[in-house]
């Protein structure tokens, strides 16, 4: 089954809606707690990435036997240096975003740590497509 969530850039107060909604569903499906926690963390970070960096985006969540699949497609500035973006502590977040307690440079590294497969396609000036898989 699948679900789609729209995310608006700059809407920090709504960030986390998709991950807590999915968390509720995964609990009902009876998945183990550690899987639910991993999915919630990865989805939350992905939501924050769109809110903090992009203009808007859509998050697609899909669960099939054995796997949770998430794809986030955004319209935004894209990522000029992917390797740097995957480095812990590296961030391009604006000072305004940092003042709000975000932009610690843990987003993508944290997603990577909580997922079993991750891929990023990005085009500078256009946007980013992030996909990740969690095995269940």
């Amino acid at each position: 089954m699948d679900k789609t969530y729209h995310i608006e850039g700059g809407n920090f107060s709504e960030a986390g809606f998709a991950s807590s909604d999915v968390k509720k569903l995964l609990k009902k499906l009876g998945l183990p707690t550690n899987i639910i926690k991993k999915a919630a963390i990865a989805m939350y970070e992905a939501e924050i990435n769109v809110v903090a960096h992009a203009y808007r985006g859509d998050m697609e969540f899909k669960i099939i036997p054995g796997q949770i699949l998430v794809t986030v497609q955004d319209e935004g500035p894209g990522i000029p240096d992917l390797e740097l973006a995957f480095t812990e502590g590296f961030s391009t977040a604006s000072s305004k975003v940092r003042e709000m307690g975000f932009g610690a440079g843990m987003g993508l590294p944290n997603i990577k740590r909580n997922t079993d497969d991750i891929s990023v396609e990005t085009e500078v000036g256009k946007g980013t497509r992030l996909s990740f898989v969690i095995n269940i």
């Binding site: 609990k27 009876g30 269940i136």
Partner: peptide
Amino acid sequence: SKLDTDLIKAM
């Protein structure tokens, strides 16, 4: 809160 013990049935 579990819908079913079997994941496919729960889905």
